[in-house]
Amino acid sequence: MTALGGVWSAARRLAVGSALVLPLVGCAGGVDTVPGSSSAGTAAEEELTGQVTVFAAASLSDVFGTFETRFEELHPRVDVLVSFAGSSSLAEQIRQGAPADVFASADLATMASVEDDGAVSGSTAFTSNSLELVVPVGNPAGVTGLADLARSDLAIALCAEEVPCGAATVTLLDAVDVEAAPDTLEQDVTSVLTKVRLGEADAGLVYRTDVLAAGDAVEGIAVDGADDVVNVYPIAVLADAPNPDAADAFVDFVLSDEARGILDGAGFGAP
């Protein structure tokens, strides 16, 4: 623990050092760009400096990458660092004292577990995700709907119940009364997608955003009832955030209309 703490504080010192250098660079080009983006910031926000460490669920990789770029354009003196991993892993790191400022989880339960430990007081739902059937290109098994997940002659890949996408899968299949015959219960949504992409699985259930992000590599089939079973994504500033002002500003950005547009484009739903 102490050794890790040492590494972290060393990393923070380094970050502070680079934050001291960055403003010099940022000021030169920032003078004429700031008035153009005046709609996004008050005078107080423009004084934000330092580093913001954001822990975000793996499914948010694409959109939070865009958020990071945009936020740094709006606040040139702030350096955003995003760490992507499974929500449960991130929650465990936060419990072990990782010096993060912001946590965005892929489900309410994980955020609640962090709140129970006092690392967060109060979170805001900012988006949601729903499940979609995914099949290999050309749909070789002729899958049409959730009922096909019960066919034992097909190779079916689903998320394991222990992870958020698996919990959503169970709820959805219960709601539509389908008893699935999975051949594998994967440890995350990416693994399901990989099995389908390679044609090993004839069908799988993944998030709509994953189907969109995979592009032409797979085909998605929207299913009835999926909109009723959504994973809500909450975001929160951590109680021990090293840079609470910038963290607040980042969360405000994630809740802004501009961020909403980016989320919509990636297939995320309303909170």
């Binding site: 449960s88 890949a157 394991a160 992870v163 051949d183 594998t184 440890q187």
Partner: peptide
């Protein structure tokens, strides 16, 4: 887990079960 997948009693070995339990 990549080649065989993970299904209880068929392909879910103890290391895989342990990893899944770590999430919960």
């Amino acid at each position: 887990v990549t080649f065989a997948g993970s299904f209880p009693g068929v392909t879910q070995t103890l290391p895989i079960a342990t990893y899944l339990e770590l999430q919960r």
